[in-house]
Design a protein around this nucleic acid. Structure first.
Lengths: 202, 202, 202, 202
DNA sequence: TATGAATGAGGTTTCATTCAT
DNA sequence: GATGAATGAAACCTCATTCAT
């Protein structure tokens, strides 16, 4: 029954439908080549309605980047709260979690890359993402240091390690196009881990 | 005579000026948000002249991707011809070469990423790049195998190693925005190398 | 309420305003030399509105040809239903009707001629007109035959008579430029009739 | 041998090649949809050369109309000098001559119709053609009068007869698209003649 | 609140014409 | 005289946004 929903809930739901359509289409076609009319169609609303919930195409793009970012943040900045054990264990679990996250939300990763590729075009969003990266590094820094002290990780600048890790996450989205299947992502995880320390197969 | 250049040479030179302007602007602004008028201005020619040398905006984009690709190809598919020594040495030199290459041509790498991010939008170009990646893997495969036999490299699928290497190359372009300076790229090289085998600092 | 008209009626009306403007300007200036902006201005709507109702300039041209054709058709293919009496009477009335029709809609006749003059440029429209001509001949054929049996008409191929009749209708639009006045068209009618049989003045 | 030609002759010949190409293409595609480059190609010269012989596209169009007009004129204004015998004979021969003329030069007739259809667009050319029509009427007028006096022709305004004759000539170009073959044109001639007087078969 | 017709700025592309070689 | 590269005005068309219903 639709009628069980309050008005507010209905509105939230419609807003969310539109946002999901936007994420899908922006990620597939980029900002410029996505038409508001298409988003409306994908969301099953008239395109006037899109402007009821978002003031402009640009604002919708920002929401499409920033709102999922909030959902994803915990997995990157609550490292020690989420992943327990030895540093190596923590990092292993973290990588597993991240790879799985982007395997299921690869379209969102694409969106992020669009912003990273054009800092001057999307300054506000870029700043947000940059801050996010910095927070991640701050969070993971002590873990890496601890791992280095225990001799598990390379004696390398923890920032570099963290950044190269983000690089490989980003890059894999580009390289392994549609093969983000269960089969490969265990492998990917292993390779990502090797940026931290010398990990042989088991 | 205005110069010693023949007519043909002048034409080639003008074409190249336009292509360079296109590479710069396409890489900065993407295909859709780059205006042909801007390319013309950047190249210092009139608007219509762009269409004298390239039939359409799309064709110019293709040329901007494919022509530099030809220049870059040798560094990826003549591995054993170019880089000599032990497998570890070969890979080291190769990574150095590639990182330096993309440090100086980071704008071109951005172009490639635009295509990789949208295979359906640029099918022809994507196919070309995909073939390029496959050739690279074919070339590097025996080197990795040799390195594995000598115990330098991880006992990992050579394809996976090669692909994760390409991932980190691509990803680093996104992560280390404008810091591709001399200082960091030695570090980057080191991290890339760690995808092949367990490399400690020296 | 601004008016009693429903939304749908208003849309139809606007579409029709644009179509009329198009017929006028296309007939005066031809397809290529008519600018969509001019049509919009003539119709009193903005530029973009034209494209709300017609997908392209070409489609608008097709509508400008085909829609009035439907209105005109009955006068050419319902000969025996519309015009009564002896064959001679039927033909007389028919010619009268046609001449008057084209006197009032001379601009539309001009449009038709543009298509007839360029079958390869407008294949779809040409086919339509060609079919129309054939239907007309089919309809008038028995009337001419009957007239021939009664000795009123020349013993000539009815198709030839019909086609020469259409020729003179078309040709007169070109020859008697703006003189399609009441004065001359009785005369024109008489001359057209003489293609059917030997008609003296009365 | 080309070398037998004087320079002047060569130039004339090239000019004529271009003009013929122009007549062909203008008649097929109209003024606006014919590109100078196409004319050049058809004529086998570079398109800069077209502008060596004609100052503009418009001027070339005018030449394409006016120069063949001079060739055709004699057949329309030297009626009594060319065609001998009784008025009926004169008219018969004239019609024969004209139909044959336009059968072989139907493309030129198409050009004329383009101008007749747009007097305001081509005022200069239209005036020229209008004068031509008037001259024709002047020339044929006495012949018709004579025929009327002899009882061969309808007691109709000779101008009307002449104009309706021109109408059918023009119209037949539109109606009998590509069937201007030997078979039909005897028939067409007969129908045209019937605008003058009551002519039975044979 | 939801709709979608109206708007017009802005982009790509064509093509006549110029002019240096 | 012949060529064809350069130019830029002008046209079509798209699409974000507004706003009346």
């Amino acid at each position: 029954m639709n009628s069980i929903l309050t008005n507010d809930e209905k509105k939230k739901r419609k807003r969310s439908t539109i946002l999901d359509a936007a994420i899908k289409l922006y990620s597939e076609n980029g900002f410029a080549e996505t038409k508001v009319a298409e988003i409306a169609k994908e969301a099953g609303v008239s395109f006037g309605t899109v402007f009821t919930y978002f003031n402009s195409k640009e604002e919708l793009y920002e929401a499409a980047i920033l709102e999922p970012l909030e959902e994803i943040k915990p997995y990157f900045i609550e490292i020690e709260e989420r992943f327990k054990g030895e540093p190596l264990e923590i990092i292993k679990e973290m990588i597993d979690c991240h790879v799985q996250l982007f395997a299921t939300r690869s379209e969102y990763l694409r969106l992020i890359q669009q912003v990273l590729a054009r800092p001057e075009r999307f300054p506000k969003l870029f700043k947000e993402l940059d801050a996010f990266v910095k927070s991640f590094i701050d969070c993971i820094y002590p873990v890496i240091e601890a791992g280095q002290r225990l001799g598990y990780f390379y004696e390398e600048s923890p920032s570099l390690i963290a950044e190269s890790y983000l690089s490989i996450l980003n890059g894999m989205r580009l390289t392994f196009i549609d093969e983000y299947t269960n089969m490969v992502w265990k492998d990917i995880t292993r390779q990502a881990l090797r940026l931290f320390g010398p990990i042989s197969n088991i």
